[in-house]
Design a protein around this nucleic acid. Structure first.
Lengths: 153, 153
DNA sequence: ATAAATAGGACTAAAATAGTCCCCAATGAA
DNA sequence: TTCATTGGGGACTATTTTAGTCCTATTTAT
């Protein structure tokens, strides 16, 4: 299914909330309450996002978290790679030395083409896009074509 | 990292081998030997691919597996959805009823746009492409841009 | 000082994935 | 017609990954 982890999903929810409250420092506790995600989990995600420089943190009383850039400068690709590491579909695309079966495997170049296409798709959507009303963005026909895929499974 | 499961990776290796030996029936045992993947695992993957109609099987002595279509008609999207189910990045994109937090969540439409872009990328590469020599397909510049992403992790 | 926050990391629990095995069904050949 | 060969289906186990929690240290406003 080419799944994103739950934590990444949570991260987009948290960041969307923050983007709507742009320029305001939010404490972890506030974000947990607002999103309904447990505090320790929110906290873990926020720390990761700080390390990836998506957020800036302030310690101490009245501290909290703030977006490190404007919502239209933060892409989905950035968020995903912050939580999951490099955006690539196979192990061998990440480490340059390839897999054990490197000798018999001539297909890594093709995965790179695929990875690049996926990366471009993720790079083209920003946090600002995500908080826009969605009606402007769904071409109904595309949903139908996606669903017809599901049938084969 | 947006990972594909190992089984899917194996499937591409197995199918690539079969594509190179197109029109020849291959037994599971032969494929296991050729790819270095354990027989029970190969067998499991082959069964899945038969169910998804990517392969056709023949039982009994001299039986085995055959591609159900020409290599240039079998896309990577087909292979991936055979093994992993619908190609979508979030749970909520699959079931139409959305997640528990549906009320507060306005972003599913945006995931659909992303899913579609990814699906198109995967649909545009076929098994025939994958067995071509890879030199013809890697634009070096794209690799550099992909690597610069990895740094942030 | 003290209370309110984040930082870092260890740890546990739960879930998904990978891998194996067994018994059945089909088929071709001796 | 019997037997070796090959796939079909599914249960089961082990492993790995992911999710989630918790503890202690550090920072800072009041």
């Amino acid at each position: 299914m080419l799944r994103l982890s739950k934590l990444t999903d949570y991260a987009t929810v948290i960041l969307s909330f923050m983007a709507k409250n742009n320029e305001r420092v939010c404490a972890a506790m506030e974000l947990a309450t607002a999103t309904g995600i447990a505090l320790p989990t929110v906290s873990k995600i926020l720390k990761t996002l700080v390390n990836a420089k998506v957020l800036i943190s302030t310690r101490g009383a009245k501290g909290g978290y703030l977006l490190a850039a404007a919502p239209d400068k933060i892409t989905v690709a950035t968020i995903i790679s912050a939580l999951e590491g490099p955006i690539a579909v196979t192990e061998c695309s990440i480490s340059q030395q390839g897999c054990e079966q490197a000798a018999g495997c001539n297909i890594s170049g093709h995965w790179n083409v695929i990875n690049r296409a996926i990366y471009n798709a993720l790079e083209s959507v920003t946090l600002a896009d995500m908080i826009k009303p969605q009606e402007t963005l769904i071409p109904i026909t595309s949903l139908y074509r996606l669903e017809s895929q599901n049938v084969s499974q």
